[in-house]
Design a binder for these strands. Structure first.
Lengths: 118, 118
DNA sequence: AAAGATATATAACTTTCTTATATATACTCG
DNA sequence: CGAGTATATATAAGAAAGTTATATATCTTT
């Protein structure tokens, strides 16, 4: 339930990663999967999701297919062939960032400070 | 040098963690340490840093001491005794979020990580 | 019939970051 | 001795990325 400010900047990489791994997905499906995978910790709201998807589509990284299922319109999003490289790049960039963050949040990293020392 | 949008929401936890581990630090020192620890990947700008520090001070989590060193004013920031619990809480909350993110992105524990290993 | 799940989307607002600007001292190099 | 770099704190304008609220509509369960 805590979809707090901690999420800023992480949602786009998460969405890209999910599309990359799972092929085509529709919006509602993405929110449910994120909730499930995170054990309910990350609540991806529609107000955050759709602007991201639309922007990715505009950038040509994501493509859409519309289908009518159970009388309701459903829009599938997937990484476009053209945008595949860029998507992978963004995902890897974020994974690098996570590695960097780990250095800060390792227990006992205070030792590092002595190198910089005064 | 990419201190891009990927950082959103992560700066406050990083700053809190640094103050928690290293005791009192001054602003400029914090920016330099972040740059060094991250291998230049995270560039903490003053425009981001000082508003965060001031807000933390207003919340009572951080306290300040002013000293004149080399004819220049220097302001030391540190976790206040009163704010210690809250700071720890925020740090742990962020560490939980990092664990959750790991589920989405399987980070391979690279060289950097093992250097600082447990 | 009402409530909840499924489904997409926009608008108003807030927070948080980047970029630019202001101020001022100390040190180093040519 | 002047220029540039490093040290030091801070604010303001603007952009980006979220939250919350709202709108619409169908299907399923109680």
């Amino acid at each position: 339930m805590a979809s707090n400010d901690l999420l800023k900047g992480m949602l786009k990489p998460i969405i890209l990663k999910l599309l990359f791994e799972n092929g085509r997905m529709y919006g509602y499906e993405i929110t449910q999967l994120v909730k499930e995978i995170s054990g309910g910790e990350i609540e991806l709201t529609f107000g955050a999701l759709y602007p991201i998807l639309h922007k990715l589509e505009l950038e040509g990284i994501v493509k859409t297919e519309s289908e009518v299922i159970n009388n309701r319109n459903r829009i599938y999003y997937s990484i476009s062939q053209k945008g595949s490289g860029k998507a992978k790049e963004k995902i890897e960039e974020f994974e690098e960032m996570l590695k960097t963050l780990k250095i800060f949040f390792k227990p006992n990293f205070g030792l590092k400070y002595e190198l910089f020392g005064q």
